[in-house]
Nucleic acid binder design. Structure first.
Length: 448
RNA sequence: GGCCCUAUCGUCUAACGGUUAGGACGGAAGCUUCUCAAGCUUUAAAUCCGGGUUCGAUUCCCGGUAGGGUCACCA
């Protein structure tokens, strides 16, 4: 049995996006699964459009995701190979130097064309079955500008042959390209690899995913605080399924379960909500110590300083932050909305905000706060924890009306319509701060 | 336009001739200490249309329709 060789062959004319990630993943998975080789090949034969920064972005993204290649090639380094095969085709008579009438600016007077045998080409695609094309209409297509500047189709075929690629897994926009590549292959005497064309990943309007339509570089997802596990899990589920209802799939499980048979035929719309959901899931599996630094890194400067000063408070609020975000990038939004600042700085608010729903009675609200204050005072500082606080206040709150008691208390502590529950807040704030804030709210209620 | 590919809830998908058409995201409702988040429970929601084949079609065949891909001296 020949060794399995797959390749991911991006052109460095754009960043590594979600669609390419999935292609890379499937190539990687298939190679690993069969003890084969996964090749990364940079297809930069177009010198005009290829950019080093894009190549760097692709390499960066792939390594972040853990899709490590076994071999690396860059087409611009392989001129000799293409020249060798080009010369062979010309000698064989399956390609020829063609004199051209340059009708357009920039067109050459001489190019190398493939001598098209013009017949029906049928190939098997692992997801779609047999596909046939009449190659007549392709004509004698150009395969190189000259011996030293091969074009895409030729370079691909020459490389796949040289590198012993056994399986070509790529996007289904490659389907129409396959017949002409097979023609070149046959002229070269190269074996035909197994073709697997993946359905496209689409934008929400079902158009091809593009920068316009929210296609981000994976490196941007990294910046937004998404986890590699989530990205990989997510892209794997677009156009593939494990054969059961499982949605959360670890890398190891993917390695076990991946197969061409379970690849979908039709395009898949990119669904950011599902990505967020998956990411949130993986976020929860993170060990808590590393998480704190990630969060801190997303804090604005002043808040970061406060958090460092009150490190024990910060440690306690990590879980409430984690419950409220689906990616670390949302931390900034959360805290700049004021969600966190009140843990460190006493809040300010309007008097009316302290009143629960249709409660109009300032005096009664103040009485509730007085009572709460009184009861909390009886708890020793060292026992000032959520369960104890709740036990202390619960019966009173229940008899007086929970909303009437708990809302003003919670508001006094947070200064916000939305926040974690008051027992938890009091616990984190500590006895001293809690009492001070209640006292402050009391004064707000009675002041003119 | 030619050629090629595709078609199940809004979205990702399961059901490889016989299911009350299943799951997930999102939505709605409810529960869980007042609000929020998280969690849990419940719920609405789909086989593109028309012909065949068959005792029986989401599934097989044909035709429409719709969407996508591709037709470079780009990749």
């Amino acid at each position: 049995m020949p060794k399995i060789v797959t390749r991911f062959a991006p052109s460095p004319t754009g960043v590594l996006h979600i669609g390419s990630v999935r292609t890379a993943l499937f190539n990687f998975l298939y190679a690993r699964q069969h003890g084969g080789t996964f090749i990364l090949r940079i297809e930069d034969t177009d010198k005009e459009r290829s950019k080093k920064e894009f190549e760097d972005n692709i390499l960066d993204g792939l390594s972040w995701l853990g899709l490590k290649h076994d071999e690396f090639f860059r087409q611009s380094d392989r001129g000799a190979v293409y020249r060798k095969y080009l010369e062979k085709l010309i000698i064989d008579g399956t390609a020829y130097v063609s004199k051209e009438e340059p009708v357009e600016e920039g067109k050459l007077a001489e190019v190398i064309r493939f001598k098209n045998p013009k017949g029906i080409v049928t190939f098997r695609d692992e997801v779609r079955g047999d596909i046939s094309f009449d190659t007549t209409e392709l004509g004698d297509f150009v395969i190189a500008k000259d011996l030293d500047t091969p074009l895409y189709h030729f370079a691909v075929v020459a490389d796949d042959f040289e590198m012993g690629v056994t399986h070509i897994i790529r996007g289904d926009d490659g389907i129409s390209n396959t017949p002409r590549q097979i023609l070149i292959q046959e002229a070269l005497g190269a074996p035909r690899p197994v073709y697997t064309h993946l359905p496209m990943i689409l934008a929400s309007d079902k158009s091809k995913l593009s920068k316009r339509h929210g296609a981000l570089a994976v490196t941007e997802y990294r910046e937004e605080g998404y986890l590699p596990e989530a990205i990989l899990n997510f892209v794997a589920l677009m156009g593939w399924n494990p054969g059961n209802d499982q949605e959360v799939i670890s890398f190891d499980e993917m390695l076990k379960l991946f197969s061409f048979e379970k690849i979908q035929k039709s395009g898949a719309v990119f669904n950011i909500d599902k990505l967020k959901w998956l990411n949130k899931h993986y976020l929860k599996t993170l060990p808590s110590k590393g998480v704190g630094e990630e969060i801190l890194a997303r804090f604005p400067e002043d808040l970061r300083k406060q958090a460092r000063e009150h490190s024990e408070v910060f440690a306690k609020i990590i879980p409430i932050i984690m419950d409220r975000i689906s990616a670390f990038g949302e931390v900034l939004e959360l805290v700049s909305g004021g969600e966190i600042a009140y843990f460190f700085v006493d809040p300010t608010y309007e008097r009316e905000a302290l009143l629960w729903k249709d409660e109009k009675n300032l005096v009664r609200a103040r009485e509730h706060l007085d009572k709460v204050y009184e009861m909390l005072q009886t708890i020793p500082s060292e026992d000032f924890v959520a369960v104890r606080i709740k036990d202390t206040l619960w019966d009173y709150a229940t008899s007086a009306g929970r909303g009437n008691v708990l809302w003003p208390l919670r508001y006094a502590l947070s200064g916000r319509d939305k926040s974690p529950d008051p027992f938890f807040l009091a616990d984190i704030l500590g006895k001293e701060t809690t009492l001070r804030r209640i006292e402050h709210a009391r004064r707000v209620l009675v002041s003119p």
